[in-house]
Amino acid sequence: MSRIEIKNLTKKFDSKNILKDLNLNIEQGEMVALLGPSGCGKTTTLKIISGLLDADQGDIKFDGKSVIDLPTEKRGAVLVFQEYLLFPHLNAAENIAFGLKMQGVDKSIRKNRVEELLELVNLPGYQSRYPYELSGGQQQRIALARALAVHPKVLLLDEPISNLDANLREEMRDLIRKIHEEKQMTTIFVTHDREEALLVADKIAVMKDGNLEQVGIPEELYRNPVNRYVADFFGQANYIKISQINKDVFPADKMREYKHKKNKILMLRPEFIHLSKEKLEYNKNILVLKGEIEKRSYAGERIYYQVKVNAVNSSLRVIDFKLSSYDQGSTVYLELPLNKAAYLEN
């Protein structure tokens, strides 16, 4: 378990930039998700940390010590591949004990460790099963146990959940989380699924085209994204250009503050907007806009509205959980809580 520092990591394939000057710090015992669409360089980052790929530039430090020149086998960063890659000629116990055997660890210690790890991944008694006798989810868990067996400095998981069936995903998610909490293992995992990242990780690093867009705790990324890319990645959002907002509707107290934000965009998630028939009394933290319901979609416990707002010249999305019923074409007042808004660069 180590603290990881990644500094100015750069990697090119055939003159195409895969990673551009990547910087990331991971605290000891932290679980970080590298989140991004395929081809954004997240798996490349994992491979460079594990040493399977060489970086063109930059440095990686484990506990302050540079490991960039250490060969993979001496680095102690264990990568669990997306395809599990259990050794087909070894049974579960031999697979799990493989790393220990290579270190020359005593047979009886290996046996105990295997037992303990099988217990941890909820597969007790599976020692003599061969990979072809195991389901995908079981193989995944053995692969995880095999990685943990060598007490890695950092655990690297490449899309650990996306290969599994939908009903197994939740189980695996819980297991990864449980193991993390029990072992306090520094973990980096790669995913393209935002929900997976939000549910499992302590911290999320959003990547795009080899750049790190934003790093933060899940709530921060959802509420305060730094740009539209991150905002869109984590769900629906309303964007309002501040320069477009009609002066009349602005809370007077906010006017001075907003002068500095003239070039920015206000971002607000649809579920934070409240709809009302009556115009709210003056409140300096709430921006009240008049709008007309364009579209109403009923979705069980919530209703989606699309509201045309002339003051800002656009349609805003609203998710209402109160099951209010405003008909199409009716006039409503939208209450936008400004303390829940984020201000993005244009």
């Binding site: 594990s50 040493g51 399977l52 993979t72 086998e73 001496k74 680095r75 102690g76 960063a77 264990v78 990568l79 591949f81 395809e83 890659l85 050794f87 493989f98 790393g99 290579m102 270190q103 095999r146 990685a147 060598v150």
Partner: peptide
């Protein structure tokens, strides 16, 4: 070569 890569990250020379 993936199995070899996997063995490598597990510390095999």
């Amino acid at each position: 070569g993936k199995f070899e890569d996997q063995a490598r990250v597990l510390g095999a020379g």
